[in-house]
């Protein structure tokens, strides 16, 4: 890290000079490379510890070794279509599900699977709500998402005990 930083300072110093050989490279972006990866790595919070779910406890580089992906579709394969639209839709679905179920799926990951024209959304839910409320919100989410996304949407919920989904403390 330190080496990269010093090397880049040296490079930038050369670039800023009016030396002819380096002038050709001025158009190429040479911002310093940051090897620091922070996404998907959890640390203790200030003043308290953090409970991690199974998804959170597994680091990104362990993906496909210890666990699977949260999004399943064929848009990123060769010849796959509507990759941007799928990504944006997935973001929308996640936000909508978090909003509709608010505190009930806090800290839980949402898995979105697309098969043919069906979107299957899976997540765990603590056993706080009575089953009839769960079914009501399910019907509401399925119908609204179907109307927005123009395809059948199915929710696949697994009820878990409180804090059952948490596997690690950092």
């Amino acid at each position: 890290m330190a080496y990269n930083f010093s090397q880049n300072i040296w490079k930038n110093a050369l670039l800023s000079s009016n030396h002819g050989a380096w002038a050709l490279h001025r158009t190429i972006s040479t911002t310093p490379v940051r090897n620091r990866v922070s996404v998907g790595r959890y640390k203790p919070l200030e003043g308290r510890k953090q409970l991690l779910t199974y998804d959170q406890a597994i680091k990104p580089h362990e993906l496909a070794h210890k666990k699977s992906w949260n999004t399943w579709n064929t848009s990123t394969l060769e010849g796959g279509r509507r990759s941007q639209l799928t990504t944006i839709e997935d973001m929308f679905i996640r936000r909508f599900i978090h909003g509709a179920w608010f505190c009930h799926i806090k800290g839980q990951q949402i898995i979105i699977k697309r098969q043919h024209n069906i979107i299957r959304i899976a997540f765990c839910l603590p056993k706080k709500l009575p089953p009839q409320s769960v079914y009501f919100i399910t019907g509401f989410c399925e119908r609204l998402l179907s109307i927005w996304l123009h395809c059948p949407v199915k929710l696949e919920i697994q009820a878990v005990e409180n804090y059952e989904g948490y596997v690690k403390i950092v």
Binding site: Y135, T138, G139, R143
Partner: peptide, 12 residues
């Protein structure tokens, strides 16, 4: 449960 689900769909 079935009625609850269809009530949710109707709300949507």
């Amino acid at each position: 449960y079935s009625l609850a689900k269809s009530a949710g769909q109707k709300a949507g």
